[in-house]
Computed example of a mutant assay.
Amino acid sequence: MFVGITNTPRDYAWGSAGEISALLGTSPTGKPEAELWLGAHPGSPSVILDPATTGDAGDLHEWIQRDGEQVLGAGVERLPFLLKVLAAGAPLSLQAHPTPEQAAAGFARENAAGIPLTASNRNYKDGSAKPELILAVSDTFEALCGFRAMAETRASIERLVELDAASGAPTPALLAEWLAFARADSDLRAMFEWLISAAPPVPKLVERVTALAEADSASEEFALVRKLAGFYPGDPGVLISLMLNHVTLAKGEALFLPAGNIHAYLRGLGIELMASSDNVMRGGLTPKHVDVPELVSVLDFSASPVPYLRAEPLGEGAQAFRPPVRDFQLIEVNEAAKVQLPSAAIVLCAVGEFMVDSGEHAVTLTRGESIFITADEGAVSIRGTGQLFVASTQ
Rank of each mutant, 00 (worst) to 15 (best):
F147T: 00
S297P: 02
V298Y: 08
G384F: 08
A303V: 09
D164N: 00
D278T: 08
E377D: 02
A379N: 10
P45V: 07
A52D: 12
A129F: 11
G352W: 07
H97V: 01
L330T: 05
L49M: 08
L72W: 07
L330E: 06
L242I: 04
P233D: 05
G127Q: 15
G317C: 02
A151G: 04
Y12K: 04
S120I: 08
N7R: 14
R326Q: 11
P45N: 12
G230M: 13
A375M: 07
P98T: 06
L266V: 15
A311N: 03
E19Q: 15
E316D: 15
Q319F: 03
V85Y: 02
L314N: 09
L38H: 11
R367S: 12
M355K: 15
I371V: 07
L388W: 01
S128T: 09
A90G: 05
A34C: 07
T366H: 05
H61G: 03
G378H: 09
P323M: 03
T8R: 14
S277G: 06
A105K: 12
A336W: 07
F389D: 03
N334K: 11
V76Q: 10
F372P: 04
A213C: 13
V306I: 14
P32D: 13
L49D: 03
S128Q: 07
D187V: 06
P236Q: 01
W63K: 02
A155K: 08
A336S: 15
M274Q: 12
M150H: 00
A74Q: 13
V325I: 07
D11Q: 10
A337Y: 04
P323H: 08
